[in-house]
Amino acid sequence: MSKSLGNYMEIITARATDADVRSRSQDGGIVSAAFIYGIENGILDGSIVASAPDKHNPSPVVAITKEDILKARGTKYSISPNVALLKSAVREHGLEKVGFVGTPCQLVALRKAIKYPLGFRHVGDKVGLIIGIFCMENFNYQSMKILIEEYANVSMDDVLKTDIGKGKLWVYKKDGSEPITVPLKETHIFEQKSCHVCTDYTSELADFSTGSVGSPDGWSTVIIRTKRGKEFIDKMIADGKLETQPADLEGKGGIPLLEKLSNGKKEKSLDTIRIREENGLPVPKLL
């Protein structure tokens, strides 16, 4: 339990043991490995993930095979409205145990839909696992395109992967050459403005959440929050699908950094909310 990271049961550092999964995943491949594990063991019959076949402009898809999941690996720093597909997943796709991955804001929406399901007939009880990713901010696709094409001078066709970390936006190219970076102070103006009222960095409503911050490169920090999340991760570890190391609870680049970033986001957003209120602008109401 911690104020800055939300309620949790346990924090670990982990990565997928399957090198194939890890190869094109964003960090430790936790999300993809978990969904593949869920499908292969009958815990899930499909998952909603963000796919970007057309050059990084993501949209949600229902993935029902390992291949589908692998195709959607990696972070897209643009909005993928994953909740939009939830109903389809249980309607025409006929799923009964749906895995869901989303940003913190999407999990608030999802948990609200489950607790107050007036518009979600026969849907809530079909959500089998909720994985959250850490999220500092997001960009709409057009903004990302400007950043990549005009600031990093890379053609969208050549982009292999993008990442945000260590104060920079990193653009990796398909030709394997050195990544191009754009300092975050240049990217700020392109952030989605509605992200500035968002106080959740670590997906506090997930079964478990994951992100890179707090763990070494190629590894992920995993915050286990619910009984369902814990059972799931424990099984994956027992079956050898995840390798783990204790989370770095003391070091500067470890969990203290995660807490610092999380608190920073909360403070900044609460400020924005206050200023909006002062200006007579509406803010999301907490009832």
């Binding site: 389809s88 025409e92 796709h93 006929g94």
Partner: peptide
């Protein structure tokens, strides 16, 4: 508006 998937058909 939509066709259904094989999984859905099998369940039906």
């Amino acid at each position: 508006a939509k066709n259904i998937t094989k999984e859905a058909r099998n369940k039906l």
